[in-house]
Nucleic acid binder design. Structure first.
Length: 840
DNA sequence: GCGGACTGCTTACCT
DNA sequence: ACAGGTAAGCAGTCCGCG
């Protein structure tokens, strides 16, 4: 994965007195050793440190040393360097086991083709070597180190004594082990990260066919422009041209290169210089293309700064961050950026996040003037850079914090999903406790499958409860929710793959409600410890600090990054155990978690009703109470803490909230008049803009309602609203683009088993030569006639199917109106058996 | 041969 | 390639109906 031929600026050190941050880890095949990339913030450069512990790749076997020596399959295996008897704690069986550590000469001898892994049963043979190295040495990526006399050691990790005391004070005291462990984490997470000197890069390649993207594996066509934008103020575009640049680009150096070799040389100089290089899709395009192109036009190998890995493009000197992979990571998308961007292009992501409109180009890049090409190319490098810079370097900070939590270098954090981050963290914790990391089939065999039945066909086990809402407008609604419900359950019920259905007879009476499963009473589960500690830290420490106005802005922002990173991890921490591709997959663990969640919900509703409170709705970890008294709330919160041992909080209060009979569908108005809309069609992204607009006008009317009596007046306004949109529709006054549904293709249009409308439209559009694939958004209009739909680009106003749109409007409005006891048809004065036209 | 009931597919959402 | 639960719209199929 990482370079073996490190040359250029990367200086190897055996002394590095200044604190330097561990940002990269690799394996040097030639020297057979692991190395670290240490970023020193003052000089803003990377130093290399080579392992001096003599650490070697290995895996474990349950055979004895003798048995391995006598085993014909491995006895003659050349890669084996040593066989060492070792002891491990086997969590599945709760006992110590003797195993053999098979030490080998290089990582491929374990996991390569014909490696040990394929010859005999092994444990811990699926872990990438550079991660293995981190786990064994205890080095934490993202943290500062110094090198003294060839030895690497932590530098500047100390937290002020008062801060440590304060943390210990606020963390729950019910479990000393969890608290100690949380404090240890705080030492890592509270320490801020330095700014990373970095450069963003973007290239343009000549292409004879306008719609085709050049293939980086072939690199047939010349690189015609490359732009850079750096954290230290460099803004430049290198353009392939024999003429001058012509008109200037303000603030940007436009450098004309007579030959492509010269252009590449200039780009490579930059790539050799910066410790961090940022791209948008550089793994699959920019860096890959540059490398292949350089080889093709015979740039000497040692001058090329790029090195390809399995699924990434790396650098010999610095580290490469591919923002495409970062922003397309579902967890990042949803939890860190609240689903603010949808599409996959740099333009789209940047315009949503940076809040800027995008600039279209009319011509293919191959036909642009030098000036326009430079401008176009630079804009992408600039946007890429600014995505790392906005909100005070949020993206870089997130990468660094996640790197610390996941015990993974930032290049891996960047490219893997949340399940790999969690897996890495858990493997690390096994290692440092001398615990054997179980193989997936052993967990499954011992723990078995699920026993509950899911509501949804095809799912493996039962999930959360969604309470049937009480329809109507409810005034003074208090919403209570359990803070981090599933992580809290995992913590307090001691859930872990080894503790659920543990091997002890005496634990079998400690049942999980609603299941035949039981939980260990003798040992603290590892998942429970790790997830529980992180939960405590987030809820009791980082989240409150991130909102504490007494702290300086700078600190608050850092705590906010930390709590956000913890949120991403915690949100996925239960789900991974219910995912059959997760190497610690444990169905009864996942199932027990949701079962206890249902128990908590049901008991809470029961208790609320017992206190005389009207419960109007609830979903998974929340209950909606109609006009409860302060005392009732107090009592309920105390009860939850006491009886369920889960923290129940007041999450929000609505002046009033409106529910229909539909679940996951409501809106609430806060005391300050702002509105909270959940699940209603009008806010869904694919809905035509004109319907959305109508919907938000409806919301605007309802926003002003303060008392029951106000609803009458609102009705009048709603009537006007509906009729005005109805007229506009009939009179074809609504532009096509506002009539279009915008739906995302989850795959290439031809691949669908059925032919839904958006796919129909996509196929029509594709026939006109537009390239469409997974992740693209297709805009289509509903039209009269056979096909029913047309891509917005190909439709005309007079073929629009007005009736269909009226039905959509009705359906959308009804979600709110039938909750208020208003009939859509009566609103527009439509008697039974007539059409809307007759009325207007 | 037609229409309603039903199932399944798909997207977008909630927790 | 974290999980399950829900709404909505449409495509496609089944079944009853002289």
């Amino acid at each position: 994965m990482m370079p073996t031929d490190v040359v250029g600026k990367a200086e190897e050190v055996s002394d590095l007195p200044k604190p330097s941050y561990l940002i990269g880890v690799g394996y040097d095949g030639e020297r057979g050793r692991a190395f670290l990339k240490l970023y020193e913030p003052e000089s803003q450069r990377i130093y290399l440190y080579y392992d001096r512990t003599g650490h070697m790749p290995y895996c474990l076997s349950n055979l004895t040393v003798e048995e391995i020596k006598q085993n014909p399959r491995v006895s003659g295996y050349r890669g084996i360097v040593a066989l060492e008897p070792v002891e491990r704690y086997d969590p599945l069986h709760d006992r110590t086991v003797r195993m053999t550590k098979i030490v080998v000469s290089n990582p491929l001898a374990v996991g390569g083709r014909g490696g040990i892994r394929e010859l005999i049963p092994t444990w811990e043979s699926n872990i990438k070597y550079h991660l293995n190295y981190l786990y064994d040495t205890g080095l934490i990526p993202g943290m500062p180190y110094k090198v003294v006399d060839g030895e690497i050691q932590p530098a500047g990790w100390e937290l002020p004594e008062e801060e440590l005391e304060e943390i210990k004070r606020v963390l729950p005291g019910d479990d000393e082990e969890i608290r100690e462990y949380a404090v240890e984490w705080a030492r890592r997470l509270s320490l801020p990260v330095p700014r990373l000197r970095r450069v963003a890069l973007d290239i343009e390649v000549f292409s004879p066919a306008e719609t085709r993207i050049p293939d980086p594996r072939k690199a047939e066509y010349p690189v015609i422009a490359a732009s850079i934008r750096s954290s230290d103020g460099r803004k430049a575009v290198f353009v392939l041209s024999k003429e001058g640049p012509g008109e200037e680009l303000p603030g940007v150096d436009v450098v004309c290169c007579e030959t492509e070799v010269e252009l590449l040389r200039r780009v490579f100089e930059v790539l050799w210089d910066y410790p961090v290089v940022v791209t948008f899709n550089g793994d699959d395009f920019d860096l890959r293309y540059l490398l292949e192109r350089a080889k093709r036009i015979e740039v000497p190998r040692e001058q090329i700064p790029i090195r390809l890995g399995e699924n990434m493009a790396g650098l010999k000197y610095g580290v490469h961050i591919d923002l495409y992979k970062f922003f397309m990571n579902r967890s990042i998308q949803v939890y860190a950026f609240s689903d603010r961007y949808r599409e996959h292009t740099l333009q789209e992501v940047a315009s949503s996040i940076l809040g800027e409109g995008k600039v279209e180009i009319e011509k293919p890049v191959s036909k642009l003037s030098i000036h326009d090409l430079a401008e176009y190319c630079f804009r992408d490098a600039d946007l890429t850079y600014r995505l790392t810079e906005f909100d005070d370097d949020l993206v870089m900070k997130l990468l660094m914090v996640l790197s610390r939590i996941a015990i993974m270098p930032i290049e891996d954090v960047n490219r893997y999903g949340v399940s790999k981050w969690i897996l890495s963290l858990l493997r690390y914790e096994h290692r440092r406790r001398g615990m054997l990391i179980p193989n997936p089939e052993d967990i499954l065999r011992m723990k078995g499958e699920t026993v509950t039945r899911a509501v949804i066909k095809g799912k493996k086990y039962r999930g959360a409860i969604v309470q049937q809402p009480v329809p109507g407008a409810h005034f003074n609604v208090v919403v209570l929710d359990f803070a981090s419900l599933y992580p809290s359950i995992i913590r307090n019920w001691n859930l872990s793959y080894e503790t659920v259905r543990c091997p002890h007879e005496e634990c079998m009476d400690n049942k999980v409600p609603g299941t035949p499963h039981w939980v260990c009473k003798k040992r603290r589960g590892l998942m429970s410890l790790v997830i529980g500690s992180l939960r405590d830290l987030r809820i009791m420490w980082y989240k409150p600090l991130s909102k504490d106005k007494r702290l300086p802005e700078e600190s608050r922002r850092w705590y906010s990054v930390v709590q956000g990173a913890l949120k991403v991890i915690l949100n996925a921490s239960y789900g991974v155990f219910g995912s059959d591709i997760f190497p610690l997959y444990c169905p009864p663990l996942a199932e027990s978690t949701t079962a206890i969640g249902r128990y908590a919900m049901t008991e809470t509703v029961k208790r609320a009703v017992g206190l005389g409170i009207n419960v109007i709705y609830g979903d998974t970890d929340s209950v909606f109470l109609e006009n409860p008294s302060k005392e009732q709330i107090e009592e309920l919160l105390d009860w939850a803490e006491r009886e369920l041992r889960i923290k129940l909080d007041v999450d929000k209060v609505y002046r009033y909230a409106v529910f229909s009979e539909r679940k996951k569908n409501y809106f609430g108005v806060y005391p300050d008049g702002t509105v909270d809309i959940k699940g209603l069609t009008g806010k869904k992204r694919h809905v035509p803009p004109f319907l959305k607009k109508a919907f938000f006008e409806l919301v605007e009317i309802l926003r002003t309602v303060r008392r029951e009596e106000d609803l009458e007046g609102a009705k009048e306004k709603i009537r006007d609203l509906v009729s005005s949109y109805y007229q506009k529709l009939r009179e074809k006054k609504i532009p096509l683009k506002d009539l279009a549904f915008y739906v995302m293709l989850s795959q290439a249009p031809e691949k669908y088993a059925t032919r839904p409308q958006h796919v129909k439209a996509a196929l029509q559009l594709k026939a006109t030569g537009v390239e469409l694939g997974a992740g693209d958004i297709i805009g289509f209009v509903k039209v009269r006639g056979e096909r029913g739909v047309k891509p917005v680009q190909l439709a005309s106003v007079d073929e629009v199917d007005v009736e269909k749109y009226i039905e959509h409007m009705r359906s959308m409005f009804e979600q709110v109106l039938d909750a208020l006891g208003i009939d859509f048809d009566s609103l527009v004065g439509k008697p039974r058996g007539t059409t809307l036209e007759m009325f207007f």
